[in-house]
């Protein structure tokens, strides 16, 4: 049995997980269905949301916050951050605008999380 702390939300439920394949995993201690999904992913293919910034030109601040729209495989976090570093976008931007599409071949887009007007 493995003990995990669910990171799906700030409640941080203490999960007890039996089994190690998608078919035989049994999860207890979860407060909601997200706990089961998290445990299954964490045991078989851990994923994380990646939040950071990309450069923006023409706005009142030099960087704008972005996130991966969905969690991406944990081992791609740093490749993804490297993509953030190489990206520059231009004001104005709105919440949800795509800054990088299909980041690192994950099929997941990186979207802007803050609207910034043109300076």
């Amino acid at each position: 049995m493995r003990e995990l702390i669910c990171i799906s939300c700030p409640m941080g439920c203490h999960l007890k997980v039996e089994g190690d394949t998608l078919e035989n995993i049994v999860v207890t201690g979860n407060g909601c269905i997200r706990g089961v999904i998290y445990a299954k992913n964490e045991i078989t293919a851990p994923k994380r949301m990646v939040c950071g910034t990309v450069k923006i030109e023409g706005a009142t601040q030099p960087v704008v916050s972005v996130k991966t729209k969905e969690p991406i495989p944990k081992e791609k976090i740093f490749d993804c951050l490297e993509q953030f570093n190489q990206t520059t976008i231009f004001a104005p931007v709105n919440v949800g605008d795509v800054a990088i599409s299909n980041v690192c071949g994950t099929g997941v887009d990186v979207v802007v999380t803050k609207g910034l007007a043109k300076k």
């Binding site: 799906s8 939300c9 949301m49 939040c51 910034t53 996130k67 919440v95 999380t113 803050k114």
Partner: peptide, 21 residues
Amino acid sequence: IHNGFGLHTFKEELTGPEYAD
């Protein structure tokens, strides 16, 4: 700018700026 905001209020996981928005 990290995620984890809004699961109680909006039933989805938002970043700080998105929650504020």
